[in-house]
Design a binder for these strands. Sequence first.
DNA 1: ATGACTGCAAACTCTTTGCACAACA
DNA 2: TGTTGTGCAAAGAGTTTGCAGTCAT
Lengths: 142, 142
Amino acid sequence: MHSDLDTQLVEALRGRGQRVTPQRLVIHRALRALDTHASAEEVLAAVDDRLPGVSLPTVYATLELLSELGFALRVGPAGGRVLFDPRLDDHGHLVCSRCGRVEDIDALDTGPALAAARRRGFTHARAGLVVTGVCGPCGDAA
Amino acid sequence: MHSDLDTQLVEALRGRGQRVTPQRLVIHRALRALDTHASAEEVLAAVDDRLPGVSLPTVYATLELLSELGFALRVGPAGGRVLFDPRLDDHGHLVCSRCGRVEDIDALDTGPALAAARRRGFTHARAGLVVTGVCGPCGDAA
DNA sequence: ATGACTGCAAACTCTTTGCACAACA
DNA sequence: TGTTGTGCAAAGAGTTTGCAGTCAT
């Protein structure tokens, strides 16, 4: 069921002359399975079920690698921590400053911003829209 | 020369029953004088000329307070550090992931994103657009 | 006078780095 | 067999917190 994604990752790794390790496959799967922006620790927790003993530094390194390979998007820091998102399309994030909850937003075209970046001589530009506020439940509590 | 801004701040502080201290006035002036997004340490350096002995925690607390009062905008964390911006209108930021340089962007209407946030039950929502990339000089160096 | 604010120092968070062992190719 | 990747531990950065003295009101 995961074979397709695994295959893509394996090919990408091979293409860069990098090794295919269980950790990388499992971390990749875990991120896809979570299906939301996840912090390194959340990924570690998800990974630990299937492949115990994985370390946090490895999770960071691997998520960073996945990000470079285009299999994940590094978001943030948002809400005090770096998040990694399996969604690859450009979208924004809605962060509650109270509880740290994060939701997706699809309501903005970041094209103009990227164009402005290019115009200023920036390369490898990527837009990150983060809306911070107080979510419903947290607002009610206060 | 700064009397107008000082007066506004003094009135805002009094209105909330908070004290008017030299540190607060000087930090506020320093941020306006810098006229760009500044980190706490940059503000501290600017303040230290006119009011030596100010501590970093005080700078953080005061910038936070200015942000609540609407005299500054808390940006970030962008590029690994929190920035405070004297520009009060909604605008984005362009951050170089190499050298940390930050520029302003005025190329985006964040209204739709804020509307989406409100629709999801979020209050006090504020949009922050951060475009990360590699600036011209850093790109040439590599 | 009194209560908030400052300064000092230390702690706390998440993230990154160094080094030796293990494992992919 | 030779590197590359992993795990462990510790460091590093920026930011926040506690406490006692000071100052605005």
